[in-house]
Design a protein around this nucleic acid. Structure first.
Lengths: 196, 196
DNA sequence: TGTATTTAATGACATAAGTCAAGTCGCAGC
DNA sequence: GCTGCGACTTGACTTATGTCATTAAATACA
C-alpha cells in the first residue's frame, strides 16, 4: 500500500534536490490519501471549490471549460508525476471555472490546502519543490502563450509533437485539437498535409 | 533620490502584508540601482542574458519576439509597479528569446540575480511578496491561456478592455493588437464593429 | 463475436482573420 | 510653420480555420 508513495517521494526528491528522511515520509503517508478515479469520473466540476490537490500516481486527466455553445476547451492535459488541481480555486477557495475529468482510470494521492499548510509545507524538500515547480510552470506558461499569439495551428501542433511526443499516442486526436485551440477537423487536415 | 524607492517599499509591503524595517529598507537602497531608459531604448535584446530584474517606478515597456517574416509579437506590456525581466533568462542565465524595449521614458530600480539571492531574498517581506506574485502570475497566465484557446479576437479584446482599461489610453492600438495576437487592421475593424 | 459508441476523415460551404495597398490624420522635431 | 513619420482606417482580396453533414474506422463491451 505504501508503494503508491514511492513515486511521490521520488518526485519531491528529484525536483527539490533534497532527501526525505523516514520521518518526513511518514508525514506524507499520514496526510495524503490514496484515491482512485474511474475513466470519465470528475475530480472537479465547474462551480465547485477545488478542495484537494492530487499527485498523479497513475492515469491521466483533462482540465477544460464549456463555452456558451457547448464546446469544450481543454486547458491542461495531466499525466503521471503531475499535480491535479485548479490552482486558483485551491489556493483562494473560490468556485472553479474548470472541470477536471479522468481520461483513464487513475490513482492519485490527495490532500487539502489546510493540511498542506500545516504539515507538508514545513518539510524543506517540499517547499523547495514548490519553488522549482512554480518556476518551471511560469516558463512553460510563457512559452505556450508566445506560441498562442505568434504561431499558426500547424506550428503549434509541431511544437506539441516535439515537446510531448507521447501525448499523441496517449490522447485521442480531438483532445489534442482542443488543447491546441483547434477544431478536430482542422487538426485532422493539418496532420494529413504534414505527411508530405 | 531615495524617493524613487518609496514606490518599491509600498509595493513590497502591500503584496507581502509585512512592514519593512528601516534597516531592511537600507538593504534595498544599497543593492537596487536606479536606472533611466529613454523611449525606444532596449532593456534586453534577443540572444542576450537578462542580467537584471527591474522594478518599474515610472514608464512602460513591451516584451516581444520577432518571427521569420519580421513580424513582432508582444507577449507582455509592463507599467509602473511591475517587474521588468525575462523570467526564464534571468533565473536560468540562458540567452533570452525576447526583446524588452521602453515604450515611454522609464525609471527603474534594477538588481542582479546574485544580489537578490544574497541580500534581498532573506528579507521576509520580499520572499512573501515573491510567493504572492508567483501565485497571481500563475492564475493570470491560466486565464489568458484559456482566453487564447477559447475566445475570438473580439472577445479577447473585450476582456482586455475590462481588465486593463487604462491600456487603451496608454498604448498605441497596434501594440494592443500585437498583445492580443491580432493584426492592427483586424483590431481596427473589431473596434469599429463594437461601436454599435 | 456482434453491436453500439467513440473517434477520425473528408467534402462543401461559411466565417474569421491576415495581407497588401492606398489614403488620412495628427503630431514630434527641425 | 513645414515636414516627415507613425498610427489608424478602409477596401479588395487571400488564407486559415470553423461548421455541418456524412461516412469510415477503431474501440469498447455485452
Amino acid at each position: 500500500m505504501t508503494s503508491n508513495f514511492e513515486a511521490l517521494f521520488d518526485y519531491v526528491q528529484k525536483l527539490s534536490g533534497k532527501i526525505l528522511s523516514a520521518e518526513e515520509k511518514q508525514v506524507f503517508i499520514a496526510h495524503f490519501k490514496p484515491k482512485k478515479l474511474r475513466k470519465r469520473q470528475y475530480f472537479l466540476q465547474e462551480g465547485d471549490i477545488c478542495k484537494y490537490t492530487g499527485f498523479i500516481v497513475k492515469g491521466s486527466a483533462r482540465t477544460f471549460t464549456v463555452d456558451e455553445k457547448g464546446h469544450e476547451h481543454i486547458l491542461k492535459l495531466s499525466v503521471e508525476n503531475w499535480w491535479l488541481n485548479d490552482f486558483e480555486s485551491f489556493y483562494q477557495l473560490t468556485p472553479s471555472r474548470f472541470n477536471i475529468q479522468a481520461l483513464e482510470d487513475m490513482e492519485i494521492l490527495q490532500i487539502t490546502n489546510a493540511l498542506v499548510d500545516e504539515f507538508i509545507k514545513p518539510i524543506p524538500a517540499f517547499s523547495a519543490m514548490q519553488n522549482v515547480i512554480s518556476q518551471n510552470y511560469t516558463i512553460a506558461a510563457q512559452k505556450r502563450m508566445q506560441s498562442a499569439i505568434s504561431h499558426s495551428g500547424e506550428e503549434r501542433f509541431q511544437e506539441l509533437v516535439n515537446q510531448y511526443p507521447h501525448f499523441l499516442q496517449r490522447f485521442p486526436q480531438n483532445m489534442i485539437a482542443s488543447y491546441l485551440g483547434l477544431s478536430p477537423e482542422t487538426l485532422s487536415r493539418i496532420r494529413k498535409n504534414s505527411l508530405k
